[in-house]
Amino acid sequence: MPDDMPDDESKITRRRFLKNMAQSAAIIAIPGFPPGTTVDEILQWNFKEMTPEEKREAVERLERRYREQFKKDVTVRTTPAREDVLFGYALNIKKCIGCRRCVYACMKENNQSRDPQIQWIRVLEFEDGTMNLEESEHYYRPKEVPEKGHYYMPVQCQQCENPPCVKVCPVQATWKEPDGIIVVDYNWCIGCRFCISACPYWARRFNWAVPHLPADELNTSTHYLGNRPRMKGVVEKCTFCIQRTREKGGRYPACLEACPVGARKFGNLLDPNSEIRKVIEKKRVFRLKEELNTEPKFFYFMD
């Protein structure tokens, strides 16, 4: 439905109802909510179904709240998916040295809670000759990587074409965008964690505590559906750095930029000349757990 079309009656009623509610009560300090949370924010609608006007208001509210919270100007964008773009990722497991620079670059870029620490990328260490996940080492700590006789496989959200996490969400707080990125509306998620149970790649994280993010570590360039600071009790995940990759002349995801050995490739799967298409055509690629029919857009390959 085009955004400027009038919605069905129910939503108009709801919107009016919420507006009236908001005007009659402008509480600021509500126990258990981030400082600066307004009643308008609590009562706002699912992002997916907001009108452009509502989106603008929601963004303004958030920017105001973040300013109060972090004493810094934060930009929250709502840049939509570009046409004829379907993002894909490829990772060369022959090159990966398991240094985990991607893990920390991702944290820095995406404003994850530092305490408790939330990481979107998990790097698995395998002994040569096996790819049995149950034999992988998650907490390897050698003096130096790569360890002899081992190889590494970073795992993050596989941005499935057929995402089991989206199917199970009872409130449509998570969905697949037209460019293939699976996003979460942190203001709509009820925190039931069904999506965490449904994800075969263990790619989703929950804010078990009030996220702690020091203001001097805050990335102020954010996207509504991506790296804007989160609140407790909601699920989050990798978005292929939606705040970077969707912008004009888009930047690569932070994990790709951080990789010291160039193991990571990213691009538009619909563009026949893109690097990602070249990788898929020229290299031997595979995807994790293909038997589950999730159709990941995250490919692993070897030279």
């Binding site: 709801r14 699912n46 969400c169 009872p170 409130v171 449509q172 998620c189 009820i190 009790g233 699920v235």
Partner: peptide, 20 residues
């Protein structure tokens, strides 16, 4: 008790929420 955001349970309801 298990919900992360029990304050948002209305999101489950038709009309005021978006039940999937």
């Amino acid at each position: 008790a298990d919900l992360g955001r029990p304050d948002r349970f209305l999101h489950l309801m038709p009309l005021v929420g978006t039940p999937n």
